[in-house]
Each structure stands twice: as C-alpha cells, then as structure tokens.
Design a protein around this nucleic acid. Sequence first.
DNA 1: GCTGTGACTGGGT
DNA 2: CACCCAGCCACAG
Length: 144
Amino acid sequence: MSENPADPRGFAERVYAVVEAIPPGRVTTYGLIARTLGSPRSARIVGGALQHTPEGRHIPAHRVVNRQGFLSGGWHFGHPDIMRDRLLAEGVPFRDEYVVDLAQALWDPSDEPDLDRLYGRPEDGFAPDDLDDDAPFRIVEVTA
DNA sequence: GCTGTGACTGGGT
DNA sequence: CACCCAGCCACAG
C-alpha cells in the first residue's frame, strides 16, 4: 500500500497541514492528528512524517507530543532540551522535565471548524476500515 | 513486491 | 503507577 487514492497530497503533506495549524503555546498528539486525518491507527506514521520534515519549511513539529504529553520526538531537535525550551518560550506548562501538561495545553485539531479546507478531505473514497473502529460491533454479511 | 521498522496506542498484568 | 505486549500502517531498502 503506498498512497491513499483520496489523498493526492500524501499522508505526510496532510500531517504537515495539521501541525502548521497548531497555535503557539498549545500542543497536540500523534494520535489526535491521525484521528483528525481519518486514520486513527496511523499515529506512528505521523511520527514518521515529522521525522522527514523538509528543512525549508517551518513546521512547528515541537508542538507534537505523545498521548502522555512526553516529548518523544525530542532527539530530533538534537536534544530534548531544545524542544522543551521552545515550548517553554511559548508558555506551554510542564508537568515534568520532559512532560507537558496536556490538561492545559492540549489542542485538538478536530475541534477546528472547516476541517476539510484546513487539512484536506479524507471522506471521498477513503478506506472504510476506520469506520468500524469505534463501533461496539461490526456489521457482517448475512450468508444465506 | 516483500520485509523490517518506528517522534504511537490502548489494553492487560 | 510502571512496565510489557501486540496491533498498527506508510515508507524505505
């Protein structure tokens, strides 16, 4: 599987679009980005995309942390301190040395209105695998 | 095309 | 609360 047909820009491009929308002083998580893009199980791919962030583009990748608020991508900046200092400079509250206070700083991309225009539209022709994710049961074919 | 690999996650122990 | 475990899925060899 390479690229989503309904996703001509590529998954990584859409990840960048979301990350660029994160307000200064706020953070979001890999999982929320993945969910917002319609692919809840692709949190790891989100991380992979950020690892290959193009130099020329100023993408605030330091505003992405894991579900616990931990700066799991800290070493990408040379040292986790770099990432932490950038967040501190923006006023992001910390619960621990390398753990941000998600209760205060978490920003959910899916709360943003007009998601389609901001991040692209995952609906058209998107693989329906995500739809049953949160469903309590799966609809199966009735065999005669 | 097949395989290995994670800046992840949620559930279980 | 802290590990451990097994899915996860796009992407690079």
